[in-house]
C-alpha cells in the first residue's frame, strides 16, 4: 500500500485555465490575430451588432466569427451571409467557453491567417466572466431593455471587461433607462471601462465603437509603432 499524503495546491480553480489562456494570447500575438470575446445576456443584440461591425470593417481586415450558441446554428448562418468566415463552436451544453474550447475553435476557423476573430460567447452574465478565453479584449453588451442596474447585480463581468457597449439606445425613450446612472455604476466596478452607447438599428454611435476596435486590432497586430507612422 502506498502511503496516503496531502498535496497542497492553494490555487484558484481557474488557474489552469488562466495559464492556458495566456498561451493562447502568445500564439495570437505571433500570428498577428486579434481575438475579441463578446459577452452579454441572451437577446441583447450581439448578432445584429456583429453584422454591422463586420460591414464597417470587412474591407480593412480579414474577419472570422465563432458562435457559441448552445444548440442552434441560426446565428452562424446569419453571419455567414456577410461573407466572412464563421463557425459554430461545440460547448457540450456548457454555460461558458473555456480556453481549451476557444483554442479548438481558433484552429478550426484557421485563425492564424485572419486579422480579427470575434467570439460570440454564450448568453449569460455569470459563467463566462469566470473563464478567460484567451481573448485580447473582452467586451460586453448591455441592452437598454435590461435596465441600468445590471452593474450592481452582476458586478463581476464588469470588472473583467475592457469595453461596455450599451445597445439598442434607439428605444431609450420607451424605457426607464438612465445612461448616466449606468456609466456611474459600471465605472464604480471598473474605472478603466470604455463605454460606447450604440444603436445597431439606426447606426448611432457605431462609428465610435468600430473606430475603437480598429485601433485595438492595429495596435495588437502591428505594434504601436506602425500606427504613428
Amino acid at each position: 500500500m502506498d502511503k496516503v499524503r496531502i498535496i497542497e495546491i492553494r490555487e484558484s480553480v481557474f488557474a489552469d485555465n488562466d495559464r492556458e489562456a495566456d498561451r493562447i494570447r502568445e500564439g495570437l500575438k505571433r500570428d498577428k490575430t486579434f481575438l475579441l470575446n463578446l459577452m452579454s445576456s441572451p437577446g441583447s443584440g450581439k448578432t445584429t451588432l456583429l453584422m454591422r461591425t463586420i460591414e464597417a470593417l470587412k474591407n480593412e481586415f480579414d474577419i472570422g466569427v465563432m458562435e457559441a450558441d448552445i444548440d442552434s446554428s441560426v446565428d452562424a448562418e446569419k453571419i455567414a451571409k456577410t461573407g466572412v468566415r464563421s463557425i459554430q463552436l461545440h460547448t457540450g451544453g456548457m454555460c461558458h467557453l473555456d480556453a481549451g474550447m476557444t483554442e479548438q475553435g481558433l484552429k478550426e476557423i484557421g485563425a492564424s491567417d485572419l486579422d480579427l476573430v470575434i467570439l460570440e460567447n454564450i448568453g449569460n452574465l455569470i459563467c463566462p466572466a469566470d473563464f478567460d478565453t484567451g481573448a485580447v479584449r473582452n467586451a460586453m453588451i448591455l441592452s437598454v431593455p435590461e435596465g441600468h442596474d445590471k452593474p450592481l447585480k452582476y458586478p463581476h463581468i464588469f470588472t473583467v471587461c475592457d469595453v461596455l457597449i450599451i445597445s439598442k439606445i434607439d428605444v431609450m425613450p420607451y424605457f426607464d433607462f438612465d445612461l448616466e446612472k449606468v456609466r456611474e455604476y459600471a465605472l464604480m466596478r471598473n474605472p478603466k471601462l470604455e463605454i460606447f452607447p450604440v444603436s445597431a438599428r439606426t447606426g448611432e454611435g457605431m462609428g465610435a465603437w468600430t473606430e475603437w476596435l480598429k485601433t485595438q486590432v492595429n495596435e495588437w497586430n502591428n505594434g504601436v509603432k506602425l500606427l504613428t507612422e
Binding site: R5, I6, I7, E11, S12, V13
Partner: peptide, 27 residues
C-alpha cells in the same frame, strides 16, 4: 450592497468570491 453603518452604496466585496483548490489527499 448597502452599508448598515452609514447607508452608503459605495461598497466593495473584500472576500467571499473565492473558489480555491486547497489540497488533495491521495496515495
Amino acid at each position: 450592497r448597502i452599508c448598515p453603518n452609514c447607508g452608503s452604496d459605495l461598497t466593495y466585496l473584500v472576500q467571499g468570491n473565492e473558489m480555491n483548490l486547497k489540497e488533495i489527499q491521495a496515495c
